[in-house]
Design a protein around this nucleic acid. Structure first.
Lengths: 231, 231
DNA sequence: CGATGTGTTGATTGACTTCAATCTGGGTGG
DNA sequence: CCACCCAGATTGAAGTCAATCAACACATCG
């Protein structure tokens, strides 16, 4: 009985496209693990001992300065791959934002397996290239955009990313969604302070661009306005 | 007569480790191209038609907003790989900062060749993962560091990167080097304005941390101070 | 030697942060 | 059941860092 058989991200994760024998081999190497909200999975600057596929939930990748400033450098959704294969240390911490389930592998085992299975490495390469693209466009946001632009861009990105997590069918961007981030975490994504995030949110609400049914809920009332604000 | 035979980055670029037959095949696909300082090689949002290895010189990867703000999202040195394989469009422009020589491939050809040569894809994966690490640590700088910290971090990174370009032997960081960037370009790397960059440079000079023999030259007088300022 | 592009320096402004007070809502124990 | 608690969020006032605006310096090149 293979747990891969029942895996909901089986067709979207890097495992997609592997044959039954390969899946079976991967299955013996990996194991499921639950990570509850707030719990860390990987520590910055630690030896890179494990890698994983996200099955369910959302996790943040962060780097910190010695004096405690934090920057969220990536967000992992279901079917995303996390950890640092082929490297000695992990340059970012990984912490669950929501309760999550992941499929973890010892990095050594995974590295060896990947090198023997070019199709898997290719999937990983495609994913890494896409992540690099996304990360670079986020650099533009961090370096050159104003607070209002950052918030607008963030909300648009959220409304897209949080909808992909469903099924294979490509849905449009969500009109209403539940943020997996606290205000502080939004600030850590955008390179702002919690107060600035709060102020910008209420401004958008007062301007009739969004509605905020609860702390974590966002409803986009005027998407074109948001797009125009995103710069 | 293969031009790869005489290639100075042959043992550091992704071509390293390929056998003679593979090198010969790559050689028929690629061609050398000179790019003079300021000349673009790839345009943002254009179809991704070519990829390349940097043989000599330094190039910048940039993204821009509609209203002309620019952010440098990466810098490519000799032996680095540029362009977007396995993707329809390039998300960043590539422009030469200095006179440069590159070895370009039609993306189609390269993609096909790479898929048939797992060792090459593996090299590319390792490179892409390393670049992602570097990019993420730059996000921390952009989002959370102050102007003095940005400048100090930048100078330290320059003193390291500009020395790796030599030979395979691992040299220590350079004490003195020539920036491949104008003040405006330094600003575009750090998410600052040209005036702020200039002021921070002169402040470091007045504090005896660095010397500025000419506009492009930098000499590090007090590295520990710089490390401590980098935050 | 002027012309032009690049860099520096100064004065002022403004956006975001910081500091501080208050609010809110979900959970708990009396 | 509801008063209380408390972390998270909002709002306000004041401060600061970097941007902007503006003038000038310097080098390179016809």
């Amino acid at each position: 009985m293979s747990s891969c058989d029942t895996c909901v991200v089986r067709n979207r994760a890097i495992c997609a496209g592997l044959d039954n024998q390969e899946i079976a081999a991967l299955n013996t190497m990996g194991r499921r693990r639950a990570v509850s909200a707030g719990e860390p999975l990987i520590w910055e600057d630690d030896d890179s001992l494990l890698v994983a596929n996200v099955i369910e939930g959302v996790l943040k990748l962060t780097t910190s300065t010695e004096d405690g400033r934090e920057q969220i450098v990536g967000v992992a959704y279901p079917s995303d791959f996390i950890g640092r294969p082929f490297g000695q240390t992990s340059k970012a911490s990984v912490v669950a934002l929501t309760d999550a389930r992941v499929c973890v592998f010892a990095r050594n085992d995974f590295d060896r397996f990947a090198r023997e299975h070019p199709e898997l490495e290719h999937k990983l390469l495609e994913r890494t290239l896409a992540e690099l693209d996304r990360t670079r466009s986020w650099m533009m946001l961090l370096g050159r955009k104003t607070a209002p632009e950052k918030i607008a861009t963030f909300l648009l990105e959220m409304s897209e990313r949080l909808n992909e997590t469903g099924c294979a069918v490509k849905l449009g961007p969500a009109r209403r969604f539940s943020l997996p981030f606290s205000r502080q975490q939004v600030a850590d994504v955008l390179g702002l302070t919690i107060e600035t995030v709060s102020r910008q949110f209420t401004k958008l609400k007062n301007d009739g661009v969004i509605e905020l049914p609860s702390r974590r809920e966002v409803e986009i009332l005027d998407r074109p306005a948001l797009v125009s604000l995103a710069g």
